[in-house]
């Protein structure tokens, strides 16, 4: 689903509103090898303050799950960048897992990442994704055992998402040292592409992570922070940030 070196960008759908999301996606498309689009959720536990607030802004603007799929359909009319939906499990679960995956796939969604669904509990979901040719992405963190890394690799048909640190999403000044051990360990175990996220916010981070052997990097909060500050007028600064991040891919 991704090839080395890949820049993956994240925004929450509907932040600040669903029509601006489409404009932002078009900017991200210029620089991103893959885009993660978040389904807003009332209780985004794995997210730090920046993305958490973005979920609440999106809900406040009235964003529904069907709006998220609609924006994907509209985006896909003109763009080919793969889209991975990032979601908490409840919105998917209440719609019916099989039904949701089928509709999402037919809307143009290429893959899904359910933040709070451990691979051990994912049989129904995996089955639905397999039947609908939906790629899957699971998370592994620095304290994930080798045995679980193997399971996660096997369950992830898209790529494996390595969480760079112990904590939530959010802009950090420095990369955690844990990430380098994790990349090394994952490279020796996983067969799928590896992308690294959480706390990745600068071109320098991107370069170091790719140099350590990862195939892709995910940047979310650094982009979402712009939306927090600029609202509907975010596109120019997001363009700048992405162009800068892209530089990290050149000399890795």
């Amino acid at each position: 689903m991704i090839r080395r070196p890949s820049l993956i960008t994240y925004v929450t759908a509907g932040d600040p509103d669903i029509s601006t999301t489409l404009d932002i996606l078009k900017v991200l498309a210029k620089y991103s090898d893959l885009i993660e689009l978040g389904i807003p959720f009332s209780d985004p536990m794995a997210d730090g303050r920046t993305i958490e607030k973005s979920h609440h802004r999106a809900l406040k603007s009235g964003t529904k799950v069907e709006d998220v799929l609609r924006v994907v359909r509209e985006f896909k009319r003109e763009h080919e960048n793969p889209i991975v939906l990032m979601s908490y499990y409840n919105p998917i679960y209440v719609k019916g897992v099989g039904r949701f995956v089928r509709i999402a796939r037919s809307s143009g969604v290429d893959g899904m990442l359910i933040v709070d669904l451990p691979v051990e509990e994912a049989n129904e979901y995996l089955d639905a994704c397999y039947r609908n040719d939906m790629k899957t992405v699971f998370l592994a963190s620095p304290n994930t055992t080798n045995e679980r890394l193997r399971m996660i690799d096997e369950a992830s048909s898209g790529f494996v998402y390595l969480v760079s640190l112990y904590g939530t999403t959010g802009v950090r000044d420095k990369l955690s040292n844990l990430v380098f051990d994790l990349i090394k360990r994952a490279k020796s175990i996983c067969k799928k592409p590896l992308s690294v996220g959480f706390g990745v916010s600068k071109a320098e981070h991107v370069r170091k992570i790719l140099k350590a052997g990862a195939d892709g990097v995910v940047v979310g909060s650094a982009i979402v922070r712009v939306i927090e500050e600029e609202g509907r007028e975010s596109c120019d600064r997001i363009d700048e940030i992405c162009r800068e991040l892209r530089k990290g891919l050149i000399f890795h």
């Binding site: 959720f41 009332s42 209780d43 536990m45 809900l59 529904k64 799950v65 499990y89 409840n90 919105p91 998917i92 679960y93 209440v94 719609k95 709070d116």
Partner: peptide, 22 residues
């Protein structure tokens, strides 16, 4: 409530049709 998943458990929750906790 309806069946849902939050805080690491499958149980009953007060939620809307999109699974947002109310």
């Amino acid at each position: 409530g309806k069946k849902g998943i939050l805080h690491g458990m499958l149980s009953y929750f007060l939620q809307d049709e999109d699974g947002q906790i109310v």
